[in-house]
């Protein structure tokens, strides 16, 4: 790709990295990344990927900005309360970097529509806030053969793993099905320290950039978790399971299902 002097200056700190260089920035510009959820995780991921120059970024969310979101969902400003989250996020992304194309998908994903939405992208970031959707994203990405970054935060804890379908363990290899609704924190328990959304979402953005530039080692076959109170990070090695109902040898999940949503999910 041809870069203007301004673009070379904008991306100079990528280009001077030996591992990225002009070739890596070309790959970033050609890449299409989908961010599911314009909330705590999706906000930092969207802003950093926009800044990095990912050529096409899709962002999916069906919600509007709520005042209680602003403590951690940094793509949204006070004046955005009441606006569609995808439009609020898209505005900030293009303000940071007018070179990129943002596709806002103002919708709720379900078993009937998710495959069509994700199909056009090279990499997906799961920034959703509830277990049913996390399983839906995992299943859809495995069935469509699209690598993705799983991520979740609650209270002071975060966890993330990267899945390359057919090559590394999927979310269902380890977590067979969503936890029962009574095992999921209730509203009063579902606090979260805002800054950990940035810790986790930026790890996910980094994985997307590593994937599209083909550098380093992805966080595959590994669950990375942290406890921000002690600031300890832990890596749990995972293995692909031949008994996995989705990506195993004899899969029983061959099409998508909608699990019941917890009405009081953490947003």
């Amino acid at each position: 790709m041809e870069y203007s002097a301004a673009q070379l200056e904008r991306y100079s700190r990528h280009i001077i990295l030996a591992e990225v260089g002009v070739e890596g920035q070309d790959k970033i510009a050609a890449a299409k990344v989908l961010i599911i959820g314009a909330g705590g995780l999706g906000s930092p991921a969207a802003l950093y990927l926009a800044a990095a120059g990912i050529g096409t970024i899709g962002i999916v969310d069906g919600d509007v900005v709520d005042l209680s979101n602003l403590q951690r969902q940094i793509a949204h400003h006070t004046r955005d309360v009441g606006r569609d989250k995808v439009l609020s996020a898209a505005e900030k992304m293009t303000a940071i970097n007018p070179d990129i194309r943002v596709r806002p998908h103002q919708m709720l994903l379900d078993a009937a529509n998710i495959r069509e939405v994700i199909r056009d992208y090279d990499f997906v970031i799961d920034g959703t806030d509830n277990f049913p959707t996390k399983f839906l994203v995992n299943d859809a990405c495995v069935l469509e053969d699209i690598p993705f970054s799983h991520g979740g935060i609650l209270r002071f804890d975060g966890q993330t793993m990267t899945v390359v379908p057919g090559k590394s363990s999927c979310y269902r290899c380890t977590f067979r099905q969503p936890p029962p609704p009574d095992a999921v924190p209730t509203c009063s328990q579902a606090g979260v320290l805002g800054a950990i959304a940035g810790m986790l979402g930026t790890i996910q953005a980094t994985e997307a950039l590593k994937y599209v530039t083909e550098i380093g080692q992805l966080l595959t076959d590994t669950l990375l978790s942290f406890d921000a109170l002690s600031m300890r990070f832990r890596r749990v090695p995972l293995r692909r399971q031949s008994s996995c109902p989705l990506c195993g040898t004899n899969p029983t999940i061959t099409e998508l299902v909608d699990y019941q949503q917890n009405a009081c999910a953490l947003k």
Partner: peptide
């Protein structure tokens, strides 16, 4: 620096 390195890398590419 470091734009001279950036232009060098673009020319090398």
């Amino acid at each position: 620096c470091p734009m001279n390195l950036v232009y060098t890398k673009v020319a090398m590419a």
